[in-house]
Design a protein around this nucleic acid. Structure first.
Length: 319
DNA sequence: AAACGGACCAACCGCTCACAG
DNA sequence: ACTGTGAGCGGTTGGTCCGTT
């Protein structure tokens, strides 16, 4: 374990930038014989490199389907959106951007997007306004989880675990070890589906902000504060306010982005089009002339569906 | 023109996971 | 059950480029 074996064994292997000759050798070998065992590639291709280095060079540079050049605005928006939910899981983000590598996206994020968010006053980790994340979020959000039996859970994780264990056969070990609460949108939507087919657990009341609650009592009914939205915003162990439910004042960035994508996709067969969620959304656009609150509510569920689509491709099934 | 510093990006490193023996 | 190996991922580094002084 630990250090990769090929890095230990062959100290005389070449490191650093690849020459055009090396690229040609690797490219010719892979195009001729395909990707097999990377550790044997250098030997068979006549390269003084370790297999790991060959693999990286192929994935990040030589692959014929790679997209070169600047990131488009669409791609930029998509990266920011996905990062908001996936965090630094570059490989999963890259999977949604055909032709881009995780390394590309990681570099783009670190060199440009991160700074851009900071410039906009947003915390690049939470995607929330700086002043909001700087304060004690748990205090400000005044999160409360009320159970009919009178138990007040100390965190959303506790409450979710309790409900989840009651409703499913997934063990506590899996739950804790995989850290699914915090990171896995598919898990969250699956969890939601198991808890309540309508997406709302009757005994699961979350208030984001006391003031907001007073101003908008409807949120209490689950119409404006659906459980999925709440769960989706439970990130990295911090309770965060949601942009989904508060669309009366500021339409969610996700939804407006998806709406833009849907409009674009009607005339452009771009990368997200293949997902069923966007087909649904295209239908929605065709059938719904106006972008109303109702439409946005539907989009929330579509977005949920969209994420399920993404995750079923990328996330390994729960053991 | 030279020196300097920041930005960018290719590549490396260290780690985890999966799997075969 | 344990160990070794390969694959894959995310964080980090270091070289190069380019703008500024």
């Amino acid at each position: 374990m630990g250090r990769h074996s090929c890095c230990v064994k062959h100290n005389k292997l070449k490191k650093g930038l690849w020459s055009p000759e090396e690229d040609e050798k690797l490219y010719n070998y892979i195009t001729r014989f395909g990707i097999g065992c990377w550790s044997s590639v250098p030997k068979l291709a006549g390269l003084q490199r370790c297999g790991k280095s060959c693999r990286l060079r192929w994935i990040n540079y030589l692959r014929p389907d790679l997209k070169r050049g600047m990131f488009s605005q669409e791609e930029e928006d998509l990266i920011v959106t996905l990062h908001e939910f996936l965090g630094n899981r570059w490989a999963q983000i890259a999977a949604q951007l055909p032709g881009r590598t995780d390394n590309d996206i990681k570099n783009f994020w670190n060199s440009y997007l991160k700074k851009k968010l900071i410039k906009q006053g947003l915390d690049p980790n939470t995607h929330k306004p700086m002043e909001e994340t700087e304060e004690n979020c748990t205090e400000k959000c005044s999160l409360q989880i009320l159970e009919p039996d009178g138990i007040t859970y100390s965190s959303i994780s506790d409450a979710m675990r309790q409900i989840f264990e009651e409703q499913t056969d997934i063990s506590r070990e899996n739950f804790v070890n995989k850290q699914m609460y915090e990171y896995d949108p598919l898990f969250l939507s699956e969890f939601q589906a198991k808890v309540d087919p309508n997406g709302y657990h009757p005994s699961f009341l979350i208030t984001h902000d006391q003031n907001q609650m007073e101003g908008n009592p409807n949120q209490n009914q689950g119409s404006g504060c659906d459980s999925f939205s709440s769960l989706m915003n439970f990130d990295h162990g911090n309770i965060m306010d949601t942009g989904f439910s508060n669309s009366s004042t500021s339409p969610s960035r996700i939804n407006s982005f998806l709406m833009n994508k849907a409009i674009e996709s009607s005339s452009n067969s771009s990368y997200m089009n293949s997902h069923a969620g966007f087909d649904q959304m295209n239908n929605l656009i065709e059938n719904e002339a106006a972008y109303s609150w109702d439409a946005e509510s539907k989009l929330d569920s579509i977005f949920q569906f969209q994420f399920s689509g993404i995750e079923t491709e990328e996330i390994k099934p729960i053991p």
